[in-house]
Every structure is written in structure tokens, then in C-alpha cells.
Design a protein around this nucleic acid. Structure first.
Lengths: 251, 251
DNA sequence: ATTCAATTGCGTTATAGTGACGCAATGTAC
DNA sequence: GTACATTGCGTCACTATAACGCAATTGAAT
């Protein structure tokens, strides 16, 4: 795989990569899709390179699709990381050796890479994590217990979450992270998990319904321990409208 | 100059550039520092390349310092632009011809460049626009009447202003854009100009003083047409504190 | 010198938004 | 039935915000 890229390195933007922080929500946990390659004991963000004739946004879509099988998902650039020391020759050489690629052939790969960070919000249940060439493991990991990551990937992840928190004040969230039918408490948990703090049930209900993006269904959640909460779905049209025009309130 | 870079192209990150949107405030106008090269009839944002052994943030500082003579100024990355078509071979070749550089030697320069956008806030009066090698004109231009720019520089400028508008809700602004002593109406004009709309005088005064970053001086502005407004200066300590912790209110 | 017009600085008021909390209704467990 | 956790709706006090009033100050006009 890397071999393919090196053999066609003229087709790729040199020294530039894409890293995606893919968020999912399940079991009341905010999860991040991470990969672990066989040649390293650390986890990493899913990433890729940029074909010279492709927009970087397109390249990010390709990465997202390659790892989740999903398209048409919320995906947003949030920052670019270009520290001088952000490429470790050791790491690169380990990878090259693993693939049996001579070091001089892999010079392209071993130089300093500037990476553009994107974050995505996807539906956990519709996602099929896809390892690439059976050489690595792709897994959802609770954002609270992410292990040590390669290079500066932890910093990238933190920045993505920080950005998501900020943008929560500017846009609605949930359409891409929750299943079609959900309850208000579930949506609240999502917000609480992203923000990292508790919200008042009653105030949350008031504010979230006031936005006008929810459609109350004539149906209650079944098999629950206590009073059955009502089910809701997003009003796609209103949701898109608010996503475009932005919110005016904050959490 | 470009020749120097091409001769040492191994020392620069290939296919990557920095573009800076440098804002200044003067005569109640928000101005942008633009350059016009002799070989083009369009204006452009000041930009530069990234040495392989330098952080991209450092490279941005270098660009800012090179064009304004300033250091230690508010400078922030806001977005990265990587459309596939964002480099015009025509433009590149024109430049190469101007410098008398053979096209094959300039291949490095003529390929697609991804550019990282930074915006800066500087003190207009302390800025000495510095042309580079007498080959170009550097000038402050009112952001309302910027002429046509090369490539996608207009898009970059617009995005910078949009970001600045957003961040106005999160941080105080003015310390880098105004002289040491200023009046509340001047500060208000700055805010109005950035936001592109009028604010109520009396509400503005109340909110801006409530933040606690202003120090009222025992001095009034002289030589003014009407009632002399009081002079203020920023309380550097409080200002830095708010800059770090962020604002909670919006405009 | 007096008046005028523009501007500043401080205030008031009505309304909307926010945080904190009360309480009845609903459903499970025993 | 009783106990208990959770949901859904409502209340209340407080704060923030927008809209506007008005006296004081100053240079310019008369």
C-alpha cells in the first residue's frame, strides 16, 4: 500500500498528509476511530496522502470513506499541524523496514510532513471500520481512555475536540451521531459527553426544542427501566437550515 | 529572490506556502496589507514558503516580520486552502519568465501549492510596509475596496475576516490594532468596521467596560470637533487574561 | 456673547434568555 | 400496593440585551 504510493509518488502532494478525527457515539460514550498498525505498538489517527490533482477536502473524504465506508457525512477541516519536528525519522524508518522498502527509496515518506486535520461526525451503528490490507486494526475507542498515540496525534485529537466544543455553540449536532430515532435524554448525554460536563435536564429540553430542529414522534422507547421517554427524530430541513445559518445561543 | 529559493529548493517544504492577511486600523477604516508585484497587474496577499526545518507558525512570523518589520504580534492560523486548481500554470510561468528562470528549472514553483492562511492584527502607525527587493509595491488597502486579487486570495481574505468576526465573540480585540491611547468611540468604530454593522453607543460602552480590560485615563482627546472624549488604554494584564480565558458574551 | 449642532457619558425600561429547582406522571422492581 | 428512578412540564429569580432619554460638553455659526 505504502509501496504503491511510493512507486507513484509523483502523483501525490509531497510532504502533506491528511488526518481525520472520526467521532462516533455509542453506549453514552463519545468514541474516536483509531487504527493500530502491526509495525507499531501505538495507535494513530486514520490518515492518508493527497493526490496532486485532488482538493485536500476530497482527499479527506477519501480517508473517511476508506475507513468507515461512509460518504456524505459531516466533515470539517479544523487546523493544520506543521511543527518542524512533527516527523520522526525513527517512526518512518520502522514503517519502511516493515514493508521491506529500502530507506533511500522511502526518502519521500521520511521527510517532514505537514498534516491537515479534519474531524467527522458519523453514525456509530452504520459504520463498518475497515482495516486496510489486513495489516492493521481499526477500532472505536472511548475518547476518555485513548492510549498513547504516535507523533502529535494526541494533540490533533485534543484540538479536534476543542473545536467541536466551540462549534457546538454555532451549530446543531446529533444528526450525524445518533440513529434516526432517539430520546431527549440520549441527545443530552451526547451534548454532555462532548462538553465534558452535566447539563440540567429541564433546561436542556427547553433549549433544544426551542431551536425547532426536532420532530416529536408518536412513539415511546421500549424496554427501559423507568418511565419510557418519548422518541424524536430530526427535522432534516430545519436542521440543515440551522446548520447553514448558525445558532445564536450557547451551552 | 525566487531564484534563491529555487536554488535551495531542498531547504523548503515542497508544494506548501503561507499567506498572511494582515489587518490594520486607520482613519476609521479596516485595512489590509497587500502587495503588487511588477510582473502582475493583480494584487496579492503577502506570502512565503516554509523552510523544512521550521514550524509553519514560525514561517508565518517570518512573513509578517518581513512585510511589516513587526514581531510579537497577534498572529493566528485560520484555515488551509488546497483546491486542486489553486495554482495557475499561467501565473507561475509569467513569474518565472519575469525572473528569467527556465520553465524546467522552475518546476518546483509551478506545481500545485497548498497554502496555510494566517491572519494578523497590527498597529497601523507602527508598521513600515516593506517591499521586497524593490520589485513590488506594498500598500494598505481599505478592506471594502480591495481590487481583484490573484488566484484564490480574495477567498482567503474573506475567510480571514469571517474568522476574525467569529473570534470577536471569544476574545478582546484592539490591543494590537489601536495606538496606546484611544477613545471609546474609536474602539467602537473598530468593532463596527470588523463586524460590518452599527452598534449602539451606550450599550457598547457598558459592555466593553464591563469586561474590565480598559483603564480610564485622566486625559481627554484634544482638537476634536465636539465634546472631547476621554482617553483609555488597555490594562495589559487583564487583557492577556481575558485573551487566554475567552469572553462569554457576543456582539 | 449667544445659539446651534454634534457628540459624549450616564441613565432607564421592557423584554428575552438563563440557571436553579418543584412536582406530578409514568414505568419497573419487589 | 409501595418504593424508587426517570420523564415531562412548569415556576421563579436573576442577568443580559436592545432600545431609547437626557443632560453636559465642545467647536462652529451668528
Amino acid at each position: 500500500m505504502l509501496k504503491n504510493i511510493l512507486d507513484n509518488k509523483e502523483s501525490y502532494q509531497p510532504g502533506l498528509s491528511i488526518d481525520c478525527v472520526i467521532f462516533g457515539f455509542h453506549d453514552n460514550q463519545l468514541k474516536v476511530l483509531l487504527i493500530k498498525t502491526k509495525y507499531s505498538d501505538k495507535w494513530a489517527l486514520p490518515g492518508g496522502f493527497v493526490p496532486v490533482d485532488e482538493d485536500i477536502d476530497e482527499a479527506a473524504v477519501t480517508v473517511l470513506h476508506g475507513r468507515t465506508g461512509l460518504r456524505g457525512i459531516f466533515l470539517r477541516q479544523f487546523s493544520t499541524f506543521g511543527a518542524a519536528k512533527r516527523c520522526s525519522v525513527d517512526v518512518s524508518n520502522t514503517v519502511l523496514e516493515f514493508y521491506g522498502i529500502p530507506l533511500d527509496e522511502g526518502k519521500w515518506y521520511a521527510s517532514r510532513f505537514v498534516t491537515v486535520g479534519y474531524y467527522a461526525l458519523v453514525d456509530f451503528l452504520q459504520t463498518v471500520p475497515q482495516p486496510e490490507g489486513n495489516n492493521d486494526i481499526v477500532e472505536w475507542i472511548d475518547h476518555n481512555i485513548v492510549p498513547e498515540l504516535v507523533l502529535d496525534h494526541k494533540e490533533i485529537l485534543d484540538k479536534a475536540l476543542e473545536t467541536l466544543r466551540m462549534e457546538l455553540n454555532l451549530m446543531p449536532v446529533g444528526y450525524n451521531l445518533l440513529p434516526e430515532k432517539f430520546t431527549i435524554p440520549e441527545l443530552q448525554k451526547l451534548y454532555e459527553t462532548i462538553l465534558g460536563r452535566k447539563l440540567d435536564r429541564r433546561n436542556f429540553l427547553r433549549k433544544i426544542t426551542a431551536i425547532g430542529i426536532l420532530r416529536k414522534l408518536d412513539e415511546k422507547k421500549s424496554n427501559v427501566a423507568h418511565k419510557a421517554p418519548n422518541l424524536y427524530s430530526f427535522d432534516k430541513e430545519k436542521y440543515e437550515e440551522v446548520l447553514k445559518n448558525g445558532l445564536t445561543q450557547g451551552w
